[in-house]
Structure formats: C-alpha cells, structure tokens
C-alpha cells in the first residue's frame, strides 16, 4: 500500500513538473511591429532576410554585416527588432545567433526554404 501511495505521489509530481514545461511564456507588451525572440544566453542575434539581402551576404563579397538588423536584448533575455518601417509584402527571415547558427522563428508556424535551410515567413501588411 505504501509503495502504491509513494508511486502515485512520484507520478503526480512528475506530471505537474512535466505540465509546467509546457505552460507558455507571455509575450512582453508590444510596442509597434516587432520580431521578438527569447534567447537569454546568446551573445548576439541578427535577423537575416530578403529585406536586407540576407545580411548583405548575397551581395558582392559574401560577408554578413555584423551590425545589420542586430536585435536588442533586454534584461529578461528578450531580443527584439522593430520592423514597422518595412514596405508591405512577404518576406523570408531567420535568426542568426552567435554569428554562426541559423534558427527559424520558433513561434512562427509558417516556413519556407532558403538555400536548403528552413526559414520563417512573415507577411507585412501595406
């Protein structure tokens, strides 16, 4: 009997802990039209996209400009970039993390491809 109670308590604890892993975090209050990424440990995050020639990398030279569309981090680990000034249209984009890693927007369900990589898609209204 004690074994069953102990097992039940352990299972309940694991269930509660497991569920807490899936309770979504709130998006910070929005100011304008922004891209937001929560990644507290990154040293730098940039947005590479159709609108900036993929960080200038598709232009002659091929070097990604390290400050072009670099996101700003707040104390809570949120990286943000204001895209309010973009003209209306469909854009593919990706987060360029720590100067070498491409990651799609984890909370944008729409995806496309760029040079064999999965990237995100955003529609900016006119």
């Amino acid at each position: 009997m004690i074994r069953i109670i102990t097992s039940s308590i352990v299972l309940l604890f694991l269930l509660i802990v497991g569920c807490s892993l899936f309770i979504p975090r709130e998006i910070p209050p929005e100011q304008g039209n922004r891209l937001v990424l929560w990644l507290p440990g990154a040293s730098s995050v940039q947005v590479l996209s159709d609108w900036n020639e993929w960080g200038s990398s598709v232009a002659a030279g091929g070097t990604i400009n390290p400050v072009l569309d670099r996101m700003e981090r707040d104390e809570s680990g949120y990286w943000t970039l204001d895209i309010a000034g973009l003209p209306g249209g469909v854009y593919r984009y990706v987060y360029f993390v720590n100067g070498y890693k491409w990651i799609r927007d984890p909370v944008n369900p729409e995806t496309a491809a760029f040079e064999g990589r999965i990237v995100s898609v955003i529609m900016v209204p006119d």
Binding site: S20, L21, F22, I23, P24, R25, W38, L39, P40, R104, D105, P106, V107, N108, P109, T111, I118
Partner: peptide
C-alpha cells in the same frame, strides 16, 4: 502533410517540432 509547433514555456524551455 507538413506540421510544425513551437513553444517557449514559463520554465524557460523552448520546444520546436517539425
């Protein structure tokens, strides 16, 4: 069929499924 899901939890866990 293509499906994807993403979530960042209060516990600080980022999930991504494709």
């Amino acid at each position: 069929v293509s499906a994807s899901a993403g979530l960042i939890s209060r516990a600080g866990v980022a999930w991504d499924v494709i």
